[in-house]
Amino acid sequence: MHYTFEIERGNFTDAGQASSSVKRTLKHLGVAPANIKRTVVALFEAEINAIAHAYGGTIDVDIDDEKIVMVVADTGPGIPNLDLAMQEGWSTASPEVREMGYGAGMGLPNIKKNTDDLKIESTVGVGTTVTMTVFFA
């Protein structure tokens, strides 16, 4: 099962629609609530990150009987220092993002906590690809 969603820079009005759609799908498939929660929290954080920081991008979601793989790929600006970005409390979010209730530097650490596998590839000036996997078993 494959789904693709578009991410538009700064569009907080629609923020969360991809995560919401995935949540409905997983519920429909009968995935355990705890795994649904982990999945949608991770995806929502990644979605918010991309809307807040990136120039735009896509979310690709693949679901099978054992797992869900979510790939959030943007077209820049890239993360200059990934170690810093992974630290709780480190943030480069704008005041507008903070007014929306985000930008506290908890996003990537929270994604790591809620996923079974997390890969982040980022090149400054090119973009960032975040690949998150949650196993259902």
Binding site: A15, G16, S19, S20, K37, V40, V41, F44, G101, Y102
Partner: peptide
Amino acid sequence: QTMRTSEM
């Protein structure tokens, strides 16, 4: 976003 976060 208060609602979306609550949903998640």
